[in-house]
């Protein structure tokens, strides 16, 4: 199961390197597929131009992920605010630039 996932998330294609640090843990270099698409936040009826950063990871790389873990990629530090394993070996981390 792990071999196809590694082939899917690799730096030769859409993957990129990131430093993942679990809460209370040590930094580890992992490969992720990063996305940061536009997101229109609506707050009390007003719109705000936001983005919705996510990182698709191998579940084995982030198996202990909890909210508050950090991920540094492209020199930007993101905080994990959501952990979404899909049950097939991938986990999507929902990220924010603010903790």
């Amino acid at each position: 199961m792990d071999q196809p996932i590694s082939e899917f998330i690799n730096t030769d294609d859409f993957g990129q390197s990131a430093t993942y640090t679990a809460s209370g843990g040590s930094p580890a270099t992992i490969t992720i597929i990063f996305d940061n698409e536009f997101f229109l936040s609506t707050i009390v009826g007003s719109g705000y131009e936001n983005t919705n950063p996510t990182a698709l990871c191998k579940t084995t790389d982030v198996s202990t992920a909890t909210n508050g873990a950090t991920l540094v990629t492209d020199s930007v530090t993101y905080y994990v605010i959501g952990v979404q394993p899909d049950g097939t070996g991938f986990t999507k981390l929902i990220l924010s630039t603010q903790n």
Binding site: F39, S41, I43, Y48, N50, T51, N52, P53, S96
Partner: peptide, 10 residues
């Protein structure tokens, strides 16, 4: 209060 990339409040 809502949070995506940025934390916003209204």
């Amino acid at each position: 209060i809502e949070q995506e990339s940025k934390l916003i409040a209204g």
